[in-house]
Design a protein around this nucleic acid. Sequence first.
RNA 1: GGAGAGAUGGCAGAGUGGUUGAAUGCGACGGUCUCGAAAACCGUUUCACCCGCAAGGGUGACGGGGGUUCGAAUCCCCCUCUCUCCGCCA
Length: 427
Amino acid sequence: MLDIKLIRENPEKVQELLNRRSEEDYALQPILELDSKQRELETSRSQLSARSNEIGKSIGQKIRSGSDPKGAEIGALKAEGNEIKSKLSELEPQEKELKAQIDNLLLQLPNLPDESTPIGKDERENVELRRWGDEYLPQNGKILPHWDIGEKLGIFEFGRAVKVAQSRFVSLVGAGAALERALINFMLDRQIAAGYLEVMPPILINSNSLTGTGQLPKFAEESFKCQDDDLWLIPTAEVPVTNFYREEILDASLLPIYHCAYTPCFRREAGSYGKDTRGLIRLHQFNKVELVKIVHPDTSEAEHQSLVQNAEEILQALKLPYRIIELCTGDLGFGAAKCYDIEVWLPSSETYREISSCSNCKDFQARRADIRFKEAGKKGTQYVHTLNGSGLAVGRTMAAILENYQQPDGTVKIPEALQPYLKREIL
RNA sequence: GGAGAGAUGGCAGAGUGGUUGAAUGCGACGGUCUCGAAAACCGUUUCACCCGCAAGGGUGACGGGGGUUCGAAUCCCCCUCUCUCCGCCA
């Protein structure tokens, strides 16, 4: 959520930054108008309350000092009190309504892109920052897509998963399941060693949590909802883990907080019909190891860089070629101010595909979720900065291994670093 | 699912209609003392919003929402959550 004070005091700047995202009309004017009405009401309302408090106090004093509670003097005060009460009963609902409207509008606004985020319309204007692992690019000509090799090896089951669920679900079988498990453990161990505290959060979460990280109210159709409860399947562990600290005031000495979490993730993938219909790339359910950081605002830039590194290290350990993309303003996610994607090489389609997305949300989620910190000796509180990134998407990592480690005879080598986890060298 | 109990400041824990933003204790912070520390003593110690250049002033908040009243932490209603017992269950 954007700071209403910032919008109030600097509407042109806010407008300009929002416009960098897209040509959508972010109409700040209605917010400003509602805001000034609300403040007007608040001023008159609080003046009335002040008088009402005075009356209450003075009635109390008079009664205690012997005035007749049924007498004329107290009667007059009561009458005035009643008059104020009736005025307040008109003002209060109006003010409440205004606040709700303002809140509604604010919740719809995306984060401001960071000044350093490259300006661009869509993913075509993302900026490639660097590549890693060219020396590991597979050399042999014909590489089967991972779904074909997986099917040959008998490690996936698509048809039966569709039968028991729906399209865009998969079951891993035998070595496939073991490989998935091995990858999860491998990733977690690495991130724990890098200083992240592991969490296994709830996978069903309430609406407040989704609002806190920005998936609601705008993107309700992207998550699965349980009809009879205010509970949703998590689209990413970012949501429960960041919301761990919702409505808390943390002691500054606790920062930075680093968490990693393995969870399944559930996405409706509405609007992606016909895209990536085969394989492990785009599923309604997939596994992910997520990294979440809650940090002091002064350090969030550096924390962002190291977050990306932590995700990269997994690919480096697995010797999978990748590149780092800096998203342009037009491709930036709703809550992000700045975002780096890591894209892994998929030789069967000769493309780099997103395997991690590392965002700095700055204070945007912190405002929505009300996550603050207090520095000893300093008056008041400040909002933390929140960051998150995949470390990594497990299914896509498996796809990358199946393709990049494919051998001419149709077998797949297991990356060395993973062998101790899977306890075999070849699939 | 059935029956009961409860939700107060960082924590513990008073408060059942009138200067109660809230006693008391602990903790934390500052000071005195000390070579230093402990102890003791003194003091401080919530957050948000609004008005104001400022000094300052005001409002709101005792799980959440409504109601009664001139006045609610205190009374009434609804909701949420927690705990205990029974049932069920991985």
